[in-house]
């Protein structure tokens, strides 16, 4: 099993907002990737954005500025 590490995870109500996040982060050069939303934070299915905790503030500010709707922000070890 791969080693777990701290992650900053964003969850969404729709796939469209997750895709908008990937686009935004790519444009801004913010690292990260789309993952299946972890079961320990939501029983729902869906796609989440996972990034380094170092990017947390930048991601929150960028999503707010771009008016991308999020379900929640999560500090996790994945």
């Amino acid at each position: 099993m791969r080693e777990k590490k701290p992650c900053f995870v964003v969850t969404y109500y729709t796939t469209a907002e997750a895709m908008a996040t990937e686009r935004l982060c790519k444009e801004k050069g913010i690292g990260g990737k789309l993952i299946s939303a972890p079961r320990n934070i939501t029983a729902d299915c869906g796609i989440a954005w996972s990034s380094s905790p170092d990017n947390k503030e930048l991601i929150i500010a960028s999503l707010s500025e771009a008016k991308i709707e999020v379900q929640g922000f999560h500090d996790l070890v994945l």
Partner: peptide, 13 residues
């Protein structure tokens, strides 16, 4: 593909 346990269809566009 999202909010699978809601009985209503998701309300977000």
């Amino acid at each position: 593909g999202v909010q699978s346990y809601l009985e209503d269809h998701p309300s977000e566009m």
